[in-house]
C-alpha cells in the first residue's frame, strides 16, 4: 500500500512486530555498550545490535522511511569521530609517560563499578559508537540497492 508522501506500508504483522521489538533492541544494544567492562559484551557486539535496528525499520516501513528517519551524513561523520576518539584515548598513555593504550586513572572505585577501569571504559564507548555508526551506514547503503524505485521518487521530490 503506497501513500502520496512516499511512505510505503508493509505487512501489518511485520509493522507491529517491529514496533514492539525496536525499542528493546536499541536499549539492549546500548546497555551492552555501556556495561562492556563489567558484564559480557563490549563495543563491537553492542554496536552491531543497535545498527540492526535499522534493518527492523527497513523491514517494517521500507527504504524511504528508514532513510528519512536516519541521517546518513551524521553516521558517516560519526564513524570518523569514533575512530579519532579511540586514537586520542590511546595516546593518553603517552602523555602520562607509559606506552600506547596504557590504562590510566584506574584506581577510583571498587571492582565492578562502571568507571573503575579507567580508560578501558571510554575506549569501549568510542569503539561502540564507531561500530554503531559505521555498520548502520553500511546497512543503509546496502538497502539502497534493494529499493529499485528510490531514485525515481528522489527525482520527483
Amino acid at each position: 500500500m503506497k501513500f502520496k508522501n512516499g511512505i510505503t506500508e508493509k505487512n501489518v504483522i511485520m509493522k507491529c512486530g517491529a514496533d514492539m521489538m525496536l525499542p528493546f533492541a536499541v536499549v539492549f544494544g546500548i546497555y551492552i555498550i555501556l556495561f562492556g567492562t563489567v558484564s559480557p559484551g563490549g563495543g563491537f557486539q553492542g554496536g552491531v545490535m543497535v545498527a540492526a535496528a535499522a534493518v527492523l525499520l527497513y523491514l517494517a516501513y521500507g527504504y524511504n522511511t528508514a532513510k528519512n528517519a536516519i541521517n546518513t551524513e551524521v553516521l558517516r561523520v560519526g564513524e570518523a569521530c569514533g575512530a579519532t576518539m579511540y586514537v586520542i584515548l590511546g595516546l593518553c598513555g603517552l602523555f602520562v609517560g607509559a606506552n600506547f593504550c596504557r590504562n590510566i586513572f584506574f584506581d577510583n572505585g571498587a571492582v565492578g563499578d562502571l568507571i573503575s577501569a579507567g580508560t578501558i571504559t571510554f575506549m569501549g564507548y568510542s569503539v561502540g559508537f564507531k561500530v554503531l555508526t559505521g555498520v548502520g551506514f553500511l546497512l543503509l547503503l546496502m538497502m539502497s540497492l534493494l529499493a529499485p524505485d528510490s531514485d525515481e521518487e528522489e527525482e520527483e521530490e
Binding site: 567492562t37 600506547f100 573503575s116 569503539v127
Partner: peptide
Amino acid sequence: KTMAANNVAAVVFDFRGFDTLGESFILL
C-alpha cells in the same frame, strides 16, 4: 593492573590495544 571485572574487555582494550585499533580501522 586494570581493575576491570570483564577480563576480555581488559585484554582487548588495554593489553592488545593496537590490535583493536587495527580491527576498527579495517572496519573503516
